[in-house]
């Protein structure tokens, strides 16, 4: 048994958790999420750098909330998501045990939220090289070029809403796109409506997105949708000095204000 499997077995045996959200290797060799509710299943657990998924999404599932004492394998993005969710009062009804791998590949189990927060703050990531490159490219474009770029991307969107589904911050029990009185976003997939959908998604995540990049990574048509919130987070940090997923006490930037917020465009 690996040290992870030993640790999880221990957590089950001393009653700290009764459900563990983790990864296992599927038949096609990719890590898939797994939900372990007893010691006998611990053997399938894996936790490697290829486990990129953000499992904190599952913390909103009814079945998980019912389990009460939940353990979760968390990569750094997941940790930030948990910090942000706690700051938005979303994880009140479960006792969570968070397990991560530190930079030396050692297992860390956080005893308190403070410990977790301190770890996150000490290991706060820079934007990935890839995203930085794309962001620079986009910023260097003229406005009309950017318009062309994004409308072309959005024309391919099929409105499968996978970007919403994998987002740990999209936890509303009923989404704006699901209402039809009024119909804010068209049901059919067509560029105008798609653009509105992605604008709305980004705006609703403004100051809350923790930059895990899952939405862009999993988009079946390969739209880099995460760039919208990456850009917004940059703005928010520059304008208001707020970082998302950084502190459990912060709330989020668009939920608060300072009388001295600066802008140059209001006449």
């Amino acid at each position: 048994m690996t040290s992870l499997q030993n640790k999880v077995t221990e957590l089950f045996e001393n009653g700290t958790i009764n459900l563990l959200i983790g990864f296992k290797e599927a038949i096609h060799k990719l890590p898939v999420p797994c939900f372990i509710d007893n010691v006998s299943q611990v053997e399938q657990l894996i936790f490697t750098p290829s486990c990129k998924g953000n499992l904190s999404v599952y913390l909103h599932k009814t079945e998980v909330k019912q389990a009460k004492k939940v353990g979760i394998l968390a990569n750094t993005a997941t940790l930030r998501a948990i910090v942000q969710l706690v700051s938005e009062n979303q994880l009140g009804d479960i006792e969570k045990t968070v397990i991560t791998l530190n930079t030396n590949g050692e297992l860390v189990v956080f005893a308190t939220m403070d410990e977790l927060e301190a770890y996150v703050q000490a290991n706060f990531p820079e934007l990935s090289e890839e995203d930085k490159k794309l962001l620079d490219q986009l910023n260097a474009m003229s406005r009309t070029e950017r318009w062309q770029y994004w409308t072309e991307q959005f024309s391919a969107c099929v409105k499968c809403y996978a970007c919403r589904a994998v987002c740990p911050m999209c936890y509303c029990s009923s989404c704006t796109v699901e209402g039809n009185q009024p119909q804010w976003i068209k049901v059919s997939s067509e560029t105008t409506g798609n653009l509105e959908w992605h604008t709305m998604r980004a705006m609703h995540l403004g100051g809350r997105c923790i930059n895990c990049g899952e939405c862009g990574r999993i988009c079946p048509v390969g739209i880099p949708v995460h760039m919208l919130t990456v850009k917004m987070n940059q703005d928010i940090e520059a304008e208001f000095g707020a970082k998302t997923g950084f502190s459990v006490k912060n709330g989020y930037a668009l939920n608060s204000f300072k009388p001295g917020d600066k802008e140059q465009f209001i006449k």
Binding site: V57, K61, C160
Partner: peptide, 28 residues
Amino acid sequence: KHASMGCFGCGACAFACPTCTCFDIQDE
């Protein structure tokens, strides 16, 4: 239950699928 606990409930599989035929009818 085990097979579907990880399912997010998006439409990525159905939309990519060559045989999924379900549709919605909408007026615009």
